[in-house]
């Protein structure tokens, strides 16, 4: 008798897979990455290369060390490294960038069990770790098209006084900031690509944008500047939408987005930190399991059942 392949139904699946999802995220980030390198020069390229490479190496070493099949093929380490690189200032020493990747992969991701098991976004947490450890290096920004050893400038957000930068500059990314977070235009394009490819749904970023804009308007700031400056675009589109650390439900995503938007503006307006997006996302990451539980929908047909009781 011929040997038959026996599986449980369904016997067909779609062609999506984890590495395909990650590849889409990498594609979506590429324009903003190239733009950042174009604005901030060769050192920016080095930083991104170092974060990606060290993320991959860290994942490989960890998997080998704990005798687990290396999970490099799912490309998630590359995404983490790339996101971290884009979140770093273009003048950062390379060893700090490498350290950040190691923290992201080993401490935040693998120690909790690897992809799908971490409770906080690795890139965000690594950025915060670097920020707390090396506050000066992490807040030293340069004007675009200036060699990286030139005199540093404040980002439009740092300090209590905002440096006037025109909105068009903010929109195209021609202002001092982290490597990948300055060009709102290309980040938005990447976000639209992800939505069209159905990698992410638009609820979370939209809720993030709207709540941040609304609160900053209420506080008397310029809502458009709030949206376009700092890491808000990158954070809302690429970091907050991380599958593992955001709620999978539609209303959960809305709550996450609103919460992160409000916390961002509160930190930016009242706090003395230059940037609030990372902390806002990290705080919402921690709340994610609770938000998910609150927003999980009732099974089909339960409404009728309740009436009968």
């Amino acid at each position: 008798m011929q040997k038959m392949n026996i599986t449980s139904s369904p016997h067909i699946t779609n062609t999506d897979n984890t590495s395909g999802v990650m590849l889409d995220v990498i594609f979506a980030l590429l324009p903003a990455t190239i733009c950042g390198i174009f604005f901030f020069g060769f050192h920016a390229l080095l930083i991104v290369a170092v974060t990606v490479a060290s993320a991959v190496v860290a994942e490989y070493i960890w998997c080998r060390a704990i005798k687990k099949e290396p999970t490099l093929r799912d490309l998630s380490a590359i995404v983490t490294g790339l996101l971290l690189g884009l979140n770093l200032p273009p003048t950062l020493p390379l060893w700090m960038a490498a350290l950040g990747s190691a923290v992201a992969i080993i401490v935040v991701k693998q120690m909790f069990g690897g992809l799908g098991h971490n409770f906080a976004n690795p890139a965000i947490t690594a950025r915060i770790t670097l920020m707390v450890s090396f506050p000066t290096a992490m807040t030293t920004f340069v004007d675009p098209f200036v060699a990286s050893d030139a005199i540093s400038t404040a980002t439009p957000l740092s300090g209590s006084q905002q440096i006037p930068t025109d909105i068009t500059g903010l929109f195209f990314g021609n202002y001092p900031g982290c490597i990948g977070e300055t060009s709102a235009l290309l980040l938005l394009a990447g976000g639209i690509y992800l939505v069209l490819r159905k990698v992410i749904t638009p609820e979370l970023p939209l809720a993030f944008f709207l709540s941040a804009a609304a609160l900053s308007w209420a506080l008397g700031d310029d809502p458009l500047r709030t949206l376009l400056s700092g890491g808000l675009m990158l954070g809302a589109i690429f970091m907050a939408t991380d599958y593992v650390t955001s709620p999978p439900t539609r209303w959960g995503k809305v709550i996450f987005g609103v919460g992160a938007g409000l916390i961002t503006v509160v930190i930016r307006h009242f706090g003395n930190l230059p940037e609030g997006v990372s902390f806002a996302i990290l705080l919402m990451n921690i709340l994610t399991p609770h938000i998910t539980r609150l927003t999980t929908c009732k099974p089909f047909g339960t409404e009728v059942k309740r009436d009968e009781k």
Partner: peptide, 29 residues
């Protein structure tokens, strides 16, 4: 079926994308 259509998708870790939840017509997890 034969060849590729007789095979299943390779299994990797759950990435908690939530697609199963959003797809379930009965609203389950």
């Amino acid at each position: 079926f034969t060849g590729k259509q007789a095979e299943s998708k390779p299994m990797t870790d759950c990435i908690r994308c939530g697609r199963c939840m959003r797809t379930c017509p009965m609203g389950l997890t």
